[in-house]
């Protein structure tokens, strides 16, 4: 079975600081990582391969430095990687088109796994978009995936109800954070990942040189929050009594 994991390099949103004068988030110099739930997607792909056999390819649309991050997924157990160079202006329309064209160039996939959402965009668009472009079924928000040779069954959290769905292949699945616990690669696996191939494809290599986004981001506004930040850390009884007094003064105990 040919399995493709879509994984994205993102800025570590937990490390973003606010520019004190403009109030806007500062994105330069923030460490980058693989978006959290994409590791769950990779873990699930490896589990499926362990059960039904096949190959796991990590597919990333990103900047050249994403190669280093992709190696973490190869160390977990993915077989190879494809990095598609992201154009200057990319929205979800552009990214999903590149992903689907890259999958077509690979000769197609039986199973494509994305995360329910990324930590920088949190839109959950890429999975359903890729499924739409390839005109295949989509099983979203899966917290349990059971792959068999002929069909895949998934338990899905749709917020107001739990849905069990099944599909023939090819199918695109998006997984939640709860679907599994991503494995931590051993030192041997980390060293071994250096030998696994990562191909780099340009947009013209996949016949997608002239893509235009459908949305332009024209500004990123800050979300200012000012808090008192009064932290009591000394004697416990004293801390508790100070906190209770403060709450009382704020009129919150009535």
């Amino acid at each position: 079975m040919n399995i493709v994991v879509c994984a994205k390099q993102v800025v570590d949103v937990g490390e973003i600081k606010v520019n004190p004068s403009s109030g806007k988030p500062m994105l330069e110099g923030i460490p980058k990582k693989i978006s959290d739930i994409d590791k769950n997607a990779c873990e699930e792909a490896i589990k499926v391969r362990e059960k039904v056999g096949g190959k796991v390819t990590v597919l990333t649309v990103g900047t050249p430095d994403a190669k280093e991050r992709m190696k973490e997924l190869l160390a977990m157990g993915a077989d190879n990687g494809v990095l598609v160079t992201v154009p200057d202006k990319a929205d979800h329309l552009v990214t999903s088109t590149l992903i689907s064209k890259a999958i077509q160039k690979m000769g197609g996939a039986d199973l494509i796994i994305c995360a329910e959402a990324s930590i920088d965009q949190f839109s959950g668009q890429i999975g359903p978009r890729v499924a739409g472009l390839l005109n295949i079924p989509q099983l979203t928000y899966c917290y349990k995936v059971t792959a068999e040779p002929q069909k895949l069954t998934a338990e899905r959290n749709l917020g107001d109800r739990l849905v069990t769905s099944e599909s023939s292949y090819p199918v695109l699945v998006t997984v939640t954070k709860e679907v599994n616990q991503p494995r931590l690669p051993s030192l041997m696996q980390i060293l071994g990942s250096a030998k696994k191939p990562i191909e780099v494809w340009g947009t013209s290599d996949i016949g997608a040189a002239d893509l235009k986004p459908g949305i332009e981001t024209i500004d990123i506004k800050g979300v200012a929050m000012s808090r008192k930040n009064i932290v009591f850390k000394d004697d416990l009884d004293e801390s508790v009594s100070k906190l209770a007094d403060s709450l009382s003064k704020e009129g919150l105990l009535g």
């Binding site: 329309l93 839109s123 668009q125 890429i126 739409g132 472009l133 459908g214 949305i215």
Partner: peptide, 22 residues
């Protein structure tokens, strides 16, 4: 809703247009 988000994304891909979630 979760249904709405996955639907909107698929609709946008089929129409070849942008989509703004939430």
């Amino acid at each position: 809703s979760k249904d709405g988000k996955e639907l909107a994304a698929r609709v946008s891909s089929k129409l070849g247009v942008g989509c703004s979630t939430d």
